[in-house]
Design a protein around this nucleic acid. Sequence first.
DNA 1: GTGGCAGCGTGACGGCCATCACAGCCAGGA
DNA 2: TCCTGGCTGTGATGGCCGTCACGCTGCCAC
Lengths: 245, 245
Amino acid sequence: MLPGNEPVRAPYGIEIIESCLSCPYREDRMFCNLPPAPAQALAAITSAAAYPKGATLFVEGQSPRGVFILCNGRAKLSTSSADGRSLILRISEPGEVLGLPATVTGKPYELTADVIEPTQANFISREDFLRFLREHGEAALRVAQQLGETYHSAVAEMRTIGLSHSAGEKLARFLLDLSADHDEGKGEVRLTLTLTHEEIGQMIGTSRETVTRLFAAFKKGQLLQVKGSTVIIKNKAGLEGVVGA
Amino acid sequence: MLPGNEPVRAPYGIEIIESCLSCPYREDRMFCNLPPAPAQALAAITSAAAYPKGATLFVEGQSPRGVFILCNGRAKLSTSSADGRSLILRISEPGEVLGLPATVTGKPYELTADVIEPTQANFISREDFLRFLREHGEAALRVAQQLGETYHSAVAEMRTIGLSHSAGEKLARFLLDLSADHDEGKGEVRLTLTLTHEEIGQMIGTSRETVTRLFAAFKKGQLLQVKGSTVIIKNKAGLEGVVGA
DNA sequence: GTGGCAGCGTGACGGCCATCACAGCCAGGA
DNA sequence: TCCTGGCTGTGATGGCCGTCACGCTGCCAC
């Protein structure tokens, strides 16, 4: 069964896989460690599918069909304006649930979700999902928690975009936010950044060229090194200085 | 009883009122039309208080004490950076629940809530609130819905801040967003805007002077009129044109 | 009345960065 | 092998708007 009442039929071939309820990442996320009954109920309404790079899960403005749970692969959540500019709010990681706010409230999806790596995802239709939540209060609480965290990260991005005077400050904030997740080995932080300069610009609200120039400036100032898609922050304090300035 | 385990003792005198569970606005909001049992349980853990203009309900970074439900009056939700700049995310209206994301997730409050009018609010401590949600699944679902809407409006503000090239575009977007709520009488929209230019600037990420100049420009262009704290949008299409440009 | 203060209006200046334009570079495909 | 297309690097230019500075009004307290 294809996901949704308006199935994503799409130009690209979607290949249905047996189930990815058994995929990794599942354990430590939203609907895990549920008591057996709800877990089973959940499995019954879930359908899995695979999406190629570039596929679109849902589009800003569509009425909500349901939620997608990423098993592996990542997706880009963005919004765009009439004149073609777009703003990336978030890159979703495996285990995250996409389309949750719209599905819960019934308002249109506020963002567009594009898969940026080959991805397997579980789909649950809005109808089924709401019924499930009504019947399993403990799951509703977890949904509320995930929504709270989503909001939290949205506020964090608002801070980097809204509270900076300069583009340099935005980029520094952005990198520091990223590095917050990653480990910190002997003073330097490594992070892999599989985003183009264009996309980074869309995340922090500046142009592609500015991102290029800023990276050059940061490298020149010994703040970081770039090797392919890995960024090594050599001087975290220095970056924090850029933010403070 | 004063609200919270870290009561807001504060320089200003907080005056405890009997209860504002009976206040207006209550009917059409989050915890209304609940079946009798949960409604009663909710009442039992709720304590009411009054706050003068300028009072602070909670501060960004504090660990979450609980939620505040505005009975009347309004509150300003903002975040600020080390150098004193601040960004207002939202002006909350009566009936809204403040501090919900932090209370649900357990992460620190991400925003600061300042009362901007004399306000009555109900307080529920985090502990009580979470217990209540666990015991009453249907309420958890409503919480999820409110969180979804909060997220929705956060995204809307991100759009106005992040997707505009010019400050004029931001202000136009801001006014149009506001006018979306208000009635539209014979081509023109009236809205009351009890914010200073400074505050408007903090909402859209520009300086006070720019807001002043833009209002002047919009008036000159016959797009709107300002009388005291009421703004009359004379030419909505024109404003939309500013956004499109 | 009068001082003080918060908010608004307006000019001048300068810096930042978006934009345009073009040149290398690399990967992948014909 | 060369071509093609996406990505990155870099210069030149110009405009927007942040910032500083100052004056104005209206309001409240004393």
